[in-house]
């Protein structure tokens, strides 16, 4: 095999992969509105994603709040503007850190878990077993998990922001004995309706991305157990990359509205 053939094959595979991914997303939206709706499975998956990520999100959100406050204080102190800390933290945590930290953690935890679970079902013929039992595996496995992550991740992100602000408050309180009411009033005083909406849109978009990428990679797993590992791994990498891309795009669009 010469190098030209290999380059051409890799380019072909890349574009075929993109085409297949778009077909997969299109199939999701086609199946989304068709019965049956497997509500019970959506509730179970939302619980799995939401509740089982809670401890990790709590710890990470709390630490992010403390660390960000500690890092920001010296810069504000130089200008004698430490009273702006709550506002700065409020904007940073609600606009960016809460959604982004939640999305990245869930891309690792939820995305890999969906990729590995569906991938192992694929390579052990469990998906075909569903199909021959007249159960639509796409609907039962993919649609339910994507809906669940699209619901759970925005809730987790809001919770992460809340815990991040608590972490920040504890840090500020240890230095300045500020009351929690004053802290929260200042933190939210600089936030606009657009900030909240943008955050929600971002989280919904991250949740959808994590669910669909994990499902796509799992559904297309091959080569036995090696393929399962690969599906889980690439689900995380691709989801994280797309999350940063979406962050950049949504922030840019939100900034147009701000002007």
């Amino acid at each position: 095999m010469n190098s030209n053939y290999l380059i051409s094959k890799n380019i072909d595979d890349y574009f075929i992969g993109i085409n297949n991914a778009f077909k997969f997303v299109r199939k999701f939206f086609k199946e989304l509105f068709k019965p049956p709706f497997y509500i019970k499975e959506i509730v179970i998956q939302t619980y799995e994603i939401g509740v089982k990520s809670l401890l990790l999100i709590t710890l990470t959100g709390f630490i992010v709040g403390i660390v960000f406050t500690k890092q920001s204080r010296p810069s504000l102190e130089e200008f004698g503007a430490t009273s702006w800390l709550p506002s700065l933290i409020g904007i940073a945590v609600v606009r960016a850190l809460g959604p982004l930290v939640t999305a990245l953690i869930c891309a690792g935890k939820v995305g890999s878990s969906i990729g590995a679970e569906i991938g192992s079902m694929k390579v052990t013929e469990q998906i075909e077993a569903m199909e021959v039992s007249a159960i639509n595996p796409f609907k039962y496995l993919v649609v339910t998990r994507v809906i669940a992550s699209t619901i759970a991740i925005p809730i987790l992100a809001m919770y992460c922001s809340f815990v991040g602000l608590i972490g920040s408050y504890i840090n500020i309180h240890s230095m300045e004995a500020t009351s929690i009411l004053v802290f929260y009033k200042r933190a939210f005083s600089s936030l606009t309706f657009l900030d909240i909406i943008t955050s929600i849109v971002k989280c919904v978009s991250y949740g959808f991305t994590i669910g669909i990428v994990g499902s796509y990679k799992g559904f297309n797993a091959s080569q036995g157990t090696r393929g399962v590992g690969k599906a889980a791994n690439t689900a995380v990498v691709v989801a994280m990359f797309l999350i940063f891309l979406e962050e950049m795009l949504i922030v840019q669009v939100a900034n147009w509205f701000r002007i």
Binding site: E125, Q126, A129
Partner: peptide
């Protein structure tokens, strides 16, 4: 359909 791997649902 009886699968070679049995294809029982692990979970």
């Amino acid at each position: 359909f009886s699968f070679q791997s049995s294809a029982l649902y692990d979970s």
